[in-house]
Amino acid sequence: MTRVGRRIAELSVLLGPVTLFLAVFFLGPLIIMMIYSWLAPGLYGGVEWQFYPHNFGRILGFADPAFEEFDPVYLSIFFRSLKIALITTFCTLLVCYPAAFQIAQLPDRWKAFCLFLITLPFFTSLIVRLFIWVLILRPTGLINGLFMWTGLISKPFELIYTDGAIIIGMVYIFIPFMFMPIYASVEKLDWSLVRASQDLGANGFKTFLRIILPLTMPGIIGGMIIVFIPALGNFIVPAVLGGAKVLMMGNLIEQQFLYARNWPFGAALAMLVMTAVLVLLWFYVRYEMRRDDDAAVTR
């Protein structure tokens, strides 16, 4: 066997189990969901094997008037989910970007300690952490109790079961997911370029805009994608902190599969979320390809 053949055989042995696992447990359910989204709902749940595009019509406006009805509430829920996911991504970026620079400049032993603190919430149940926020945000919770004790307010704020409560909960959960890619980019930052920019007369803002930001942009984009994708389809945080007042796409999909038993419509909603994610990933791949081309030209 030639050297190339041996190399291909080694890669097949190493990557074969992982590829098979992803094909069965990721692509398989995704294909099933895609097929179900174009089938008719069964009378008592499940699906009927006939082509039925009106599941998407209920969402996008071309529903079959004999059996389905277009309701703009589904699009409003989608755009609300999109808005909350974008705000969550932006807020986690505002928190993590300066924190990554501060931690990167610490001595090694303090770096390890800070990284441990950031990952520490993973050692606690997510439900427990969310119900702690319920205790903090409820009308008789810590925040309202503190403001009423100081006399700043006469009646409690409505903090729980709002969009703001969901954003707070998701920012709290996704901070580690945003921090790690940004921190990896900051750690690899060549500070000699920053000093050279300052020596050549650039002020702090120009140095940040032309040197620091482009060099840390891969970590920023990676963190934004890692946060935005699960935030868009999240259903645990809205269920606990949003209650029945705030409905997001994840909760709507859960209701269609588990309670309404309209699997095709739930699959169509899931495909809408998946399309938004694929569009985001397409822009990311385009950005990476353009960045590689620019790097090849400069060489």
Rank of each mutant, 00 (worst) to 15 (best):
M1S: 12
R7M: 14
R7F: 10
A9T: 15
S12F: 12
S12L: 15
V13F: 14
G16D: 07
V18Q: 12
L22E: 07
L22N: 08
L27M: 14
L30K: 05
I31R: 12
I31P: 10
I32C: 13
I32H: 14
I32Q: 11
M34N: 11
M34W: 15
S37T: 09
W38Y: 13
P41M: 09
G45I: 09
V47R: 06
V47E: 03
W49I: 14
Q50A: 05
H54V: 04
N55D: 09
G57E: 09
I59W: 05
F70T: 05
V73Y: 02
I77D: 01
I77A: 04
L82G: 04
L82S: 06
I84E: 02
L86G: 04
L86P: 00
T88N: 05
F90A: 12
C96K: 02
F101D: 02
A104G: 11
P107R: 11
W110I: 05
C114H: 08
T119Q: 13
P121H: 02
F122Y: 12
S125Q: 10
V128M: 13
R129I: 06
L130C: 01
F131A: 07
W133P: 01
L135M: 14
I136Q: 05
I136T: 01
I136P: 02
P139C: 14
G141Y: 08
L142N: 09
I143Q: 00
I143M: 08
F147G: 01
M148D: 03
M148R: 07
I153F: 13
I153N: 11
E158A: 12
G164V: 01
I167V: 15
V171D: 00
I175L: 14
P181R: 00
A184I: 10
E187Q: 10
L189V: 06
D190A: 08
L193D: 01
D199L: 14
L200R: 06
N203E: 08
K206P: 03
K206I: 06
T207L: 12
F208Q: 09
L209K: 13
L209T: 12
I211M: 05
I211E: 00
I220R: 00
M224H: 00
I225K: 00
I229A: 06
I229C: 03
A231D: 01
G233R: 04
F235K: 04
V240A: 05
L241C: 04
L241N: 01
G242A: 00
G243E: 05
A244D: 13
G250R: 01
L252C: 09
L252S: 09
N262L: 07
P264D: 08
F265M: 10
G266L: 05
A268G: 12
M274T: 15
A276T: 05
A276G: 10
L280C: 11
L281V: 07
F283W: 15
V285Y: 15
M289K: 15
R291G: 05
D292N: 06
V297A: 14
T298Q: 09
R299H: 11
